[in-house]
């Protein structure tokens, strides 16, 4: 069966340490976000950790939510691309084809999660840092959109190895995204949602804390969040406290 790649992010495990953010940048040749880039509000983070506040001092809580691309099944970014640079792979990944992209940024406008990033500038690294760049991942040029790919290069690599190994199916855990692999609290779990035995599917199928961000838009994201438990919070309708 064709995999459908997906992710579960447990917000009750996440501590906001941002190891995922650097791991992603290291794996995917994301340009260095300089101070000037931040001041221009053009920082590129394929996965970001948002922090938001609840309450007021002293009864205040800081909450974290790591946000990668949701890889929606009905992705609103896809139909608006005039050149089919955004498209959906048969394995459920929302891909950006860099050499089709002509930089209209329609996809970015149409993404409610703001996980598509435009290269306003040619990405530049000092010569010596080129040695770190991942040879499996294109460096995107100026004028091109880029985004989380669920580390497609790792998936392809693993699938190729499995084909060479008597064409066997991929095993759960054989491929992992950089963010999930780094995550110190194991808040991020990646895998094949179509494989009922995979860890990600087991969590997704059994949890009572699951929700999808902006689920009401009906885009069917492939990223499932497990909500933060707040023992002090007044009971919500239908919510269970641990």
């Amino acid at each position: 069966m064709t995999p459908r790649w997906g992710m579960v992010i447990d917000l009750d495990r996440c501590t906001g340490c941002q190891a995922c953010v650097v791991a992603c940048q290291a794996e995917n040749n994301v340009p260095i976000n300089t101070e000037a880039i931040y001041l221009q509000h053009r920082a590129i983070q394929w996965i970001r950790v948002e922090r938001y506040w609840e309450g007021e001092f002293p009864n205040i809580k800081a909450r974290y939510i790591p946000v990668p691309c949701m890889h929606c099944s009905e992705a609103p970014c896809e139909p608006v691309c005039p050149v089919y640079a955004t498209y959906h792979t048969p394995e459920g990944i929302n891909m950006q084809v860099y050499n089709r992209c002509i930089g209209t940024r329609y996809c970015s406008v149409n993404c409610h999660w703001h996980v598509r990033f435009f290269n306003f500038w040619e990405p530049k690294w000092p010569e010596s840092l080129h040695n770190q760049l991942n040879p499996d991942v294109s460096v995107r040029s100026r004028g091109v959109m880029e985004k989380c790919t669920f580390c497609i290069q790792r998936i392809n690599h693993a699938e190729q190895n499995a084909r060479l190994d008597n064409n066997r199916p991929l095993r759960d855990g054989e491929v992992n995204t950089a963010c999930a692999q780094a995550c110190p609290t194991r808040a991020i779990v990646f895998g094949d949602l179509n494989d009922p035995e995979s860890e990600v599917a087991k969590i997704a199928n059994t949890t009572d804390r699951g929700y999808k961000v902006l689920a009401e838009l009906g885009t069917n994201p492939s990223v499932l969040y497990l909500k933060k438990i707040d023992p002090d919070a007044p009971a919500e309708h239908g919510a269970e406290s641990a």
Binding site: C17, A26, E127, S128, Q132
Partner: peptide, 22 residues
């Protein structure tokens, strides 16, 4: 000690290696 996990700082060890101002 870390059972496969890393922090952000460990990830950046490669930038130390290839740092332009080494």
């Amino acid at each position: 000690v870390n059972l496969g996990a890393t922090c952000a700082r460990a990830q950046a060890a490669v930038q130390e290696l290839y740092h332009p101002d080494r």
